[in-house]
Each structure stands twice: as structure tokens, then as C-alpha cells.
């Protein structure tokens, strides 16, 4: 049986597009979860508090990640009264990348490599 060490799991053996996506957008587990959440629930329209409740995560952590994804063009921010709500930004190119990332996460080996990438940061 081939033995793997953590050193063989370095991101260099990832698909270059996926590695680029990971490096650019996914530097925390919360962002990973948010990307999957919006991909699976593309008509979400809610505040950080509401989205944190769906994920079962801390509101402040989710707020930071949402702001990051908004700044990187994946989400739009909508002012609703005195609240800020988030929706998926209609950007076909970026959504294709999210789709590719989502499909890749179905592969256990990819998830191991991606997790290693995250914990190294």
C-alpha cells in the first residue's frame, strides 16, 4: 500500500484551478461552508445573523466571512432597513468555479488536501 505523508499532501498536487480557487477564496472553514451553502441554496437572502443560524456558526465569524466573499465578488450586499442582507452575485464565471470546487469536495482525497491547505495557513 502506498504510504502518504502530510508532505505529499501539499497543495502543489492539486488541480491548478482548484488550488487558485482555494488560495483566493477559501482560507477558512467558515468560507468553505458558506460557499457550499450558497451553492446549494442559491436563493438565500438573509443577514449574517440568519445565515449563521442556518449554519449553526457564530454570527461574528460568519459576518467576517460574508464581508470577505462580498469583497471578492461572490456575494452582493443589500441594505434592508437598518440591516445588511446577502445574496449570491450573478457571476457565471465565478459560479462555474464554485461549481467545480463543490464537485471536487465530493472526493475524499481532495477534501484531505484542501483541509491540509487550510490548517497550514
Amino acid at each position: 500500500m502506498k504510504m502518504h505523508t502530510l508532505n505529499t499532501r501539499v497543495p502543489q498536487d492539486l488541480d491548478p484551478d482548484l488550488l487558485d480557487f482555494l488560495t483566493t477564496y477559501v482560507d477558512s472553514f467558515i468560507k468553505w461552508e458558506l460557499l457550499l451553502f450558497f451553492h446549494q441554496n442559491p436563493n438565500t437572502f438573509d443577514t449574517a445573523e440568519g445565515i449563521a443560524r442556518y449554519l449553526g456558526r457564530d454570527k461574528e465569524d460568519v459576518q467576517d466571512a460574508l464581508s470577505f466573499l462580498k469583497a471578492h465578488g461572490l456575494l452582493d450586499e443589500v441594505v434592508v432597513g437598518n440591516m445588511l442582507a446577502y445574496v449570491l452575485k450573478p457571476n457565471a464565471e465565478l459560479q462555474d468555479k464554485v461549481q467545480k470546487f463543490t464537485e471536487a469536495t465530493n472526493d475524499r482525497e481532495f477534501r484531505r488536501k484542501a483541509v491540509y491547505h487550510l490548517i497550514r495557513k
Binding site: 436563493n43 438573509d46 445573523e49 440568519g50 434592508v80 440591516m83
Partner: peptide, 22 residues
């Protein structure tokens, strides 16, 4: 069809304003 998940507060205030998301 669209299945939209949101919160009651966002829905209420969004609908009160013209050109809201909903």
C-alpha cells in the same frame, strides 16, 4: 420556481420598500 430562504424581518422590511429584492 424559486425556493428562497430568508428571515421574517428581512422579508417584511424588503417588501415595504419599492424595488426590493423580493
Amino acid at each position: 420556481l424559486k425556493v428562497i430562504i430568508t428571515s421574517p424581518e428581512v422579508t417584511q422590511i424588503d417588501l415595504e420598500h419599492a424595488n426590493g429584492v423580493l
